[in-house]
Amino acid sequence: MTVLELESLSVRFGGHLAVSDASLRVEGGRVTGLIGPNGAGKTTTFNAICGVVPPSSGRVLLDGKDISSAGTHQRARLGIGRTFQRLEVFGSLSVADNIRVGQEIRRSWSRRKAALPQYLDGLGDPSPDVELAAILTRLDLVALADQPVGALPTGQARLVELGRALAARPSVLLLDEPASGLDEQETDAFGDLLLQLASHGLGILLVEHDVPLVMRVCERLSVLDFGQIIAEGTPAEVRANEAVLSAYLGTGPTPAPGAPGAAPVEAQ
């Protein structure tokens, strides 16, 4: 089921077209990848989805409803959650308090039981403390619960951002380079976590530079270049796409023999 859809979205900054006519679907229960070289417009796309920058044309649909004119906080209330490429944690608060703020803001506007996230399965609609504990456990942050986030290394601070976003119980989660700053092992565990979250019904849109991670967790990938979607498909299809390769590696006059296009897909 499609939860989030972009219809020919464009974002213009002065004379610069940062996102141009981009269309994209995010399915519930799956991880969708959005990749592309630096400066391709991925973060701008995120900002347009959650209302931080206004689109110059096109529509954003959530569960089929047009939310293009809603404000940032209204979109959050409708179920869009996100993390940030450049961390936006609450540095002066502890890890637990960061997540609590997410919970408390949700509880301040939502009296309805937002779709219960499945990692809370079997807990009914849990008390905030139980939910907090569940999130901390799920993200492996229990030991750091009382640490001020400002003192954490980037990788863990990113997990705190994720936990905070989960606490708002979104139906779509936008993750902007969540794995940068994690080591190899942590990245593996993080991939498992994403798959688990998705398997419980959450729609995830993932921007990530760690290609192996993207290839592992995403069912579909869109590739953004110069603000345009240049390819869309399964990871294997995208990998074999010549346009994608040239976007990443540049197009020389003649592609070198043995170029990555011919490389076996299952490199791991």
């Binding site: 609450f90 002066s92 703020v101 976003a165």
Partner: peptide, 24 residues
């Protein structure tokens, strides 16, 4: 209190608060 935490959070990052559903 919860509200105080929210104010501190807003001081640290207004944009994050907005994307959590806070009316700034």
């Amino acid at each position: 209190s919860a509200w105080g935490r929210r104010l501190a959070a807003m001081k640290d990052s207004p944009v994050a608060c907005a994307t959590l559903g806070l009316n700034l």
